[in-house]
Nucleic acid binder design. Structure first.
Length: 207
DNA sequence: CAGTAGCC
DNA sequence: CACT
């Protein structure tokens, strides 16, 4: 019997510890089906550098990055088909977690899927490609643990680190919505079901 | 030249 | 420090 608990990091930033553990196996099998339709790929920043994290998307919109910039689009540029639908289990989890964190009106239209292999990191950035910053970001951690870093509203602001483990859900919105954040280089600490990878699902309302 | 979901 |  699993249990979960809540930690508030800053106003608007809440960790729901182990919130997704009971649903993880279902999420992982739904994820397999999604990735068969829209395989993970490595994108480039607008500056032409390779993003270390591998990603894909599901839902009405998918996030992409290329030389033209960051944006949300309806079609997978590889398959040219619409992104795979967001499974009901994904959507329910995101809505439930957002509500548990104090955001009741959140309905995601996009889920960015990130895979971190050992040594993968994500440098400091803001999520600001969405239309309406009143909606929070809901981030679900699966597999290997990682150190997540929160900064402030300016790149130069001081940082604080939080360990995220399998089943943890981090929600940030309101005054925390535009905080810089990133993930430190992931250590190889293989997970029971996912092995040497960390999967992160980030739910957003893109439009 | 400035800024970087980068890299060493 | 390299790339756009």
């Amino acid at each position: 019997m699993d249990t979960h608990w809540t930690e508030t990091l800053f106003p608007g930033a809440v960790i729901l510890r182990r919130y997704a553990v009971e649903r993880a196996d279902t999420l992982i099998s739904e994820l397999d089906a999604i990735l068969r339709q829209a395989p993970l790929r490595q994108m480039k920043t607008p500056g032409g550098r390779t993003i270390a994290v591998q990603n894909s998307s599901c839902g009405e919109f998918g996030w992409i990055s290329d030389t033209h910039g960051y944006r949300y689009i309806r079609f997978d540029p590889i398959s040219k088909a619409p992104w795979p639908a967001m499974p009901q289990g994904f959507k329910d989890l995101a809505i439930d977690a957002a509500r548990a964190a104090g955001f009741d009106k959140f309905i995601p239209d996009s889920c960015l899927i990130n895979r971190y292999l050992p040594g993968t990191k994500l440098s400091l950035h803001q999520d600001k490609d969405e239309l309406d910053f009143n909606h929070p970001i809901v981030s679900v951690s699966l597999g290997m643990p990682a150190i997540f870093v929160f900064g402030g509203l300016q790149r130069s602001d001081p940082l604080s680190s939080i360990k995220l483990e399998h089943g943890d859900v981090l929600v940030w919105g309101g005054p925390a919505r535009l905080l810089f954040h990133g993930v430190k280089s992931v250590k190889d600490q293989p997970h029971g079901t996912l092995g040497s990878q960390r999967i992160n699902l980030t739910f957003r309302r893109a439009k």
